Simulated assay, not measured.
Amino acid sequence: MGNALRFLYSNCCKPTAAGDSDSLGPHGVSSATVGVSALAHDLFHFENTSQVPEGLSKHVKSSKKAQANWYRKLVDAWKEAKPPPRTPEEAARLVIQTLKRHQKADVEGLLTFYGLPLPHTLVEVVAQPPTSLPHGVQYEMHTLPVDAKAVADGDTVTVYVSTADPRESSTVPANIHAAAVRRSEARSRRNYEEADALHKQIIDAGYRMLSFQNEEVLAKKYRIRLRGIDAPESAMPYGKEAKMELTKVLQGKSLRVLIYGEDRYGRCVGDIYCNGIFVQELMLKKGLAWHYSAYDKRPELETWEKEARAKRVGLWASKNPEKPWDWRKDRREAN
């Protein structure tokens, strides 16, 4: 078996304790491993035993012989994939592509068995990061990796930019530079009380000391409002799902952000690109945001929303979902 499958089997699919039986997924492993690791576990098991997982027949109509043929093909496809699937979307695409000639119901049943995305929910992101700054961009920033806790909801994230960045270096107040140096000295003396007090001074000024590549980095804080979309508020249907999706996309990643201005709350309004993906496109196509047409007239955003509506994915599973700007207005008026 390929190293990718062996790694996932040994690290993600360890046997579940008997006391955890309530959290088992339909294929008999912990619900925390449903998805990529569970599929890898079963492919590893199949290559060693030629046995398909128990319970699969409850989700598909084909015979055990046909199921074995699927797994044989999936084992080969997984080995040949470079790189191997790492996300539920990648694993789902491998299954769909490998079994595309088989019955749709069986393919969807197999995906459901592993908790993987169904074909109609998969998103193809097509927009490419611009090679030059588009009209209206005031400046561009490249952030340090994003912390999961920095994602406030489906359209707002807090980011940090190193003050070593040429645009930032000339604007750092002298007292903040001095506080960063003094904090480092205090930490070397193990005077953590003084170091914490200095860090509070740095934070209050809109900066923070962050660990990056085994070094302490002084970074400037920015709150980013994703331009052109409006995600459900946290208390609305699909609000939690929108936040989770944005967190999954951004967590641990360094971002390219094109800033167009500020909103009335002092947030920078910008387009975010993450590993070559235009984040607003992804959120719209997954049905986790509206095109905020009152503030952004880009036709492609309107098209991406219409695609999600037509597929009835995400919040569009409801016939008439409440718009977040109406939701906010109603609550302001109620107060």
Rank of each mutant, 00 (worst) to 15 (best):
E124N: 13
L56G: 11
V313Q: 06
I229Q: 04
L94G: 09
P173Q: 03
K253L: 05
P85I: 04
S170I: 10
G19Y: 02
K286S: 02
A294V: 02
Q103Y: 10
L74E: 00
I229G: 05
K82G: 06
G115R: 00
E194I: 14
E47C: 08
F46K: 01
S234I: 15
L5C: 11
E89H: 01
S293K: 05
K58G: 14
A32Q: 07
A334S: 14
E108P: 12
R86T: 07
R256H: 13
E185G: 05
Y295M: 08
R264N: 14
T156W: 09
Y207P: 02
S31T: 11
P237D: 12
Y292K: 01
E54T: 15
R267E: 12
E281P: 05
E333N: 13
H27F: 12
C274F: 06
L99T: 14
T49V: 13
I96G: 14
V36F: 07
H291V: 06
V60D: 13
V257D: 02
E80P: 10
L8F: 11
R264K: 10
A40G: 12
G154Q: 08
E300G: 09
N320E: 13
E89S: 10
M236C: 10
G252W: 01
T112F: 07
L284G: 06
S162Y: 02
Q138D: 04
T16N: 08
A38R: 04
L111K: 09
P173I: 02
E305P: 08
H45T: 12
E108L: 10
E124A: 12
E194K: 03
L210K: 09
V181W: 06
G228S: 09
Q67M: 11
L315P: 12
A308W: 01
K64L: 11
W78E: 01
R72Q: 15
V313E: 01
D153S: 12
R183F: 01
D204K: 03
